[in-house]
Amino acid sequence: MFMRINDLDRLFGTMSLLQKKLDNLNSDYGQSYGYKWEVEGNSPRTNLYKNGDNFEIYAEVPGIGKDDLNIKIQGNYLEITGTRNSDAPEGYKTHKIERGIGAFSRSFTLPADVDSSKVEATLKDGILYLTLPKSEAAKPKKITVS
């Protein structure tokens, strides 16, 4: 079938409009964005930022004390494991339980080796903040031209 370029173009235009609408769906109807801390998936949500000589990792770990978290680093391999214990009080009737409990683990391969002796970990308001300095070998080096 013969189609003019113009028609085709209009078709693509419509398609990209639709695409845009779909992209905005989440923000238009925010409620559809289900968001739960689930242990069933066995991995907390994390963010990884690159910040000059450091990597920063944030992980969502609500209701987990620092004694229940373990962090293991070897070269560029990082593993976060832990357990969330039930905080159900004694002698109460249960109406609803949505917050998952149990053990979880998550491991990453970082983009570069880190200096494991200088890693800092902070737990604040249910978020684990990890600062991982890159090892000397992995840091960018400035080379002067002689």
């Binding site: 989440n26 923000s27 925010g30 409620q31 964005y33 289900g34 968001y35 739960k36 801390w37 689930e38 969502e60 770990v61 609500p62 209701g63 905080d87 159900a88 009080p89 002698g91 109460y92 009737k93 249960t94 109406h95 609803k96 339980i97 949505e98 917050r99 998952g100 308001d125 249910g126 978020i127």
Partner: peptide, 25 residues
């Protein structure tokens, strides 16, 4: 984004208890 926090609800004779996960708040 609006998100719905996961909650646990318990009740005994004296009170209702509500636990909600809000990491980072």
């Amino acid at each position: 984004y609006e998100a719905i926090p996961a909650v646990d609800i318990y009740e005994n004779e004296d009170e209702i208890l509500l636990h909600a996960d809000m990491p980072g708040v």
